[in-house]
Structures are given as C-alpha cells and as structure tokens.
Simulated scan of single mutants.
Amino acid sequence: MTRAAWRHAARFRFHSAALRLREAPDLRLHVKDVMAKLENPVLMATIGGAQGLRGEVRAKAYTADPTALGDYGNLHSMDGRTFEILDIREMKNVVVVRFRGINDRNAAEALNGLELYIERDNLPDEELEEDEFFYADLEGLEALDDQGVSYGTVTGVFDFGAGDLLELKGPGKRPVLIPFSEVSVLDIDLEGGKITIDPLAAGLVDGEDGGPKFTPDKPKKKK
C-alpha cells in the first residue's frame, strides 16, 4: 500500500488508534441484553449526557461522518448490549442519538460514559481506494527507517488539536509521539506489517549532531 490520503483522513479511535471511514450501507440492529463477544473491537462512539426528556443522548462519534455512526453494523457495549440507532442528528461538536428501547431521561442518563464498539470485520475494506486505509489497522505495525532500524511499534494514533500523532513504543522504552504526516511517515505497508519513517523529520534524532533522542533497536538481520 502506498502513501495515505493524509489531508482527508478522519480521526477514529481503536484502543487509541484512529482510522478513516467511508459511508457503508445502513445496518441498524436492535437493543438486546446479550453478550456481544467482539474479537477485534473498534471504538465508534462515547455516549455523553441525556438530551431532553424522551431518551435521546449526546454522543461523541469517531466516524468521518458523525451521522453515519449506525451504518457499520452492530453497536456494542462491553457489558454485552447491542444498540439500534433510530434517529441521529448533529449538534455542535456531538451527535444526538435516539436508541430503540431508551425512552426516557432516566434511561438515557444511565448510558452516560458508555463506549460503543463494532467488530473490525464490519468495516468496508472493499470501498477503500488504493491510497486509503483504516487507521485501526496501524496498531501493531513496526516503525523502521530506510536502513531497517526499528523505532518500536505503533501503539496508538492521537490528535490533540494540532494534527495526528503516532505513538511508538519499543520493548522496555517509554512511548514517543511522532507527527503522522507524509514527511515523517514515508510509507505504510499493511501486508508487510511495517511503516517506514524518517527519524529526523519525526523528531527522533537531533538534526545538529545526529544524536538519538530515542534509542532505536539494532537493524534486523536478513534471513
């Protein structure tokens, strides 16, 4: 896979990772008190406070289109419930959602802080273009420079307001953050399980004397 569509990538967290989403067919299901055992959960939204008296809630959606929150299959909480979205609309920086079976303010308030997930397999890979990818798939990729020196693995993607950042962590080392840009991250190879980075542009080495700010691992020997 070649370089990503950096400027258009939307934030989406998967255990602190993000991904780009495209709209998918509407796949809305009912609220059920059943154990949803997700093998590869992707965080879709976090429910906030109640909105009004009829059971609506405010939620922070992590999809590219916030109103497409219910378009990727089941929405599950980790306590085993599965949610169907009956109605959704945008309001400032959140969405207002009405779930089936949540009919009053008390029921809505009980959902405050609940995180909603889907199974990774529900994301529409076939709709991705050649230069698009899901940020969720970045977690676990090894970060190497062009000499094969390892700077750890990707353990998260964050955005604190100034652009996306990749979190890298090596064995026994503290996590470090690097800019998630085409200057710092030169290539993404999902099949190969790695990304190629420029340590200088990523701020991992000092440009004045070339000294490391982050101690890399030794290059791996080719078999």
Score class of each variant (00 low, 15 high):
Trp6Leu: 01
Ala9Thr: 14
Phe12Tyr: 12
Arg20Trp: 11
Arg22Thr: 10
Ala24Cys: 08
Pro25Asp: 07
Pro25Gly: 11
Asp26Cys: 12
Val31His: 15
Asp33Glu: 14
Met35Trp: 13
Ala36Ile: 01
Glu39Leu: 11
Leu43Lys: 07
Leu43Asn: 08
Met44Val: 08
Ala45Gly: 06
Ile47His: 02
Gly48Arg: 15
Ala50Arg: 03
Arg54Asp: 12
Glu56Gly: 08
Glu56Ser: 15
Glu56Phe: 14
Ala59Lys: 02
Lys60Glu: 07
Ala61Ser: 14
Ala61Trp: 01
Tyr62Cys: 01
Tyr62Asn: 07
Pro66Tyr: 06
Pro66Leu: 02
Ala68Trp: 05
Gly70Leu: 00
Tyr72Leu: 03
Leu75Asn: 06
Ser77Trp: 04
Asp79Cys: 07
Glu84Met: 14
Asp87Gly: 15
Asp87Lys: 15
Ile88Val: 13
Ile88Lys: 05
Arg89Gln: 10
Arg89Ile: 11
Met91His: 14
Met91Thr: 13
Val94Cys: 07
Val97Thr: 07
Arg100Val: 07
Asn103Val: 08
Asp104Leu: 06
Arg105Trp: 02
Arg105Lys: 13
Ala107Phe: 04
Leu111Ser: 01
Asn112Tyr: 09
Leu114Ala: 15
Tyr117Gly: 09
Glu119Ala: 08
Asp121Val: 14
Pro124Tyr: 03
Pro124Ala: 02
Asp125Lys: 11
Glu126Ser: 13
Glu130Trp: 09
Glu130His: 04
Asp131Lys: 00
Phe133Glu: 09
Phe134His: 01
Asp137Tyr: 01
Asp137Val: 04
Leu138His: 03
Leu141Ile: 01
Gln147Cys: 01
Val149Lys: 03
Gly152Ser: 06
Thr153Leu: 00
Thr155Asn: 03
Gly156Lys: 00
Phe158Asn: 05
Asp159Val: 02
Phe160Ala: 11
Gly161Thr: 01
Ala162Thr: 06
Ala162Tyr: 10
Gly163Trp: 00
Leu165Arg: 05
Leu166Asn: 06
Leu166Tyr: 04
Leu166Val: 06
Glu167Met: 08
Leu168Met: 02
Leu168Thr: 00
Lys169Ile: 00
Lys169Thr: 02
Pro171Val: 04
Arg174Leu: 12
Arg174Glu: 02
Arg174Asn: 10
Val176Glu: 00
Pro179Ile: 05
Phe180Ile: 01
Ser181Glu: 09
Val183Ile: 12
Ser184Phe: 09
Val185Gly: 03
Asp187Tyr: 13
Glu191Leu: 14
Glu191Asp: 15
Gly192Pro: 09
Gly193Tyr: 00
Pro199Lys: 04
Leu200Ser: 15
Ala201Glu: 08
Ala202Ser: 12
Gly203Arg: 09
Val205Cys: 10
Asp206Ala: 13
Asp209Gly: 12
Gly210Ser: 07
Pro212Phe: 12
Pro212Thr: 08
Pro212Met: 13
Lys213Cys: 08
Thr215Lys: 15
Pro216Lys: 08
Lys220Phe: 09
Lys221Phe: 14
Lys221Ser: 14
Lys222Cys: 12
